[in-house]
């Protein structure tokens, strides 16, 4: 039985159809990567899953239970579905530890001592135990994002949503966050991610979902999807992503030798 099942989800903003008849099933321990152009509805889809947006039509089933948008049901659901945002959204007035214990204590009623133990445990998973007393603005972007992941994990969710969590990070900080995601995937966490990290999507995702114009345009295992796209839209999208990556990693001509030279010196 799928952990999460979306059926015919539609959502419009004014006249703009952000989502059109989206259906998707996520099995326990599955890693689903959603890719697609800007504005194709990826964030809207994630936000519908944990009730930050209310779909106009369609049904969402989580863990076999139909999801209704009542405050109580919403609170229950959010205990089990965590989300990590592109812009971290840590609480700036609280220490890292309090950021992590707030949910477990205030929402789930866990005693503070137990919540602190839990905080230490999740910080270990993101490799930031030494920052437990720090405040968010004292951390780098990559560290803040790892704390945000830890904050989601501290709720002991059964499903975690990630919305382009590396998109606002400096290139050299992306690696540390991606490594955390890889570890979570290996540990069997159920995850739905919106991502532009094609390398990560290819290596770690079980399923790739390509969204276009608010619809799921193509869906399948990474090898099939990237190897032989069925639609012109996906092929064009892959091309555009690849060319961006090429410019970023391997500039042509003389620049190439230059960058190699720099790398050589650093080693």
């Amino acid at each position: 039985m799928p952990l999460l099942a979306l059926k015919d989800i539609s959502k419009r903003f004014g006249t703009h159809q952000a989502l059109a008849d989206v259906s998707l099933a996520v099995e326990p321990s599955e890693t689903v990567a959603i890719i697609g152009r800007s504005g194709s509805g990826k964030s809207t889809l994630l936000r519908c899953i944990n009730g930050l947006e209310l779909p106009d039509r369609g049904t969402i089933e989580f863990n076999g239970k139909m999801f209704e948008q009542t405050p109580r049901r919403l609170k229950e659901l959010r205990r089990e579905i965590g989300i990590v945002f592109q812009s971290y959204n840590l609480f700036p007035h609280l220490s890292v530890e309090r950021n992590l214990t707030l949910g477990p204590t205030a929402a789930k009623g866990l005693p503070l001592a137990a919540a602190r133990e839990l905080a230490r445990e999740v910080l270990r998973m993101v490799d930031l135990e030494d920052k437990i007393a720090a405040y968010p603005q004292q951390l780098s972007g990559g560290q803040q994002q790892r704390v945000a992941i830890a904050r989601a994990l501290a709720m002991k969710p059964r499903l975690v949503l990630f919305d382009e969590i590396t998109a606002s990070l400096d290139p050299e900080l992306i690696g540390e966050v991606v490594r955390v995601l890889e570890k979570l995937a290996r540990d069997g966490m159920t995850m739905v991610l919106v991502t532009h990290e094609m390398g990560f999507a290819r290596n770690c995702a079980d399923t790739i979902v390509f969204m276009h114009d608010g619809r799921i345009w193509e869906k399948g295992p990474p090898a099939a999807l990237f190897g032989s796209p069925n639609t012109a839209e996906l092929a064009a999208f892959i091309d555009s992503i690849l060319s961006v990556n090429l410019i970023g990693e391997r500039p042509t001509g003389s620049r190439q030798s230059q960058s190699r030279g720099i790398r050589g010196r650093n080693k």
Binding site: N50, L52, P71, K75, E76, R78, R79, G82, I83, F85, S87, N89, L90, F91, L102, G103, A106, A107, K108, R151, A152, M155
Partner: peptide
């Protein structure tokens, strides 16, 4: 987003 982040931790509106 601060409201949303708090809501996503399953906190009620008063909390």
């Amino acid at each position: 987003p601060q409201w949303e982040a708090a809501a996503c931790l399953s906190l009620s509106l008063p909390k």
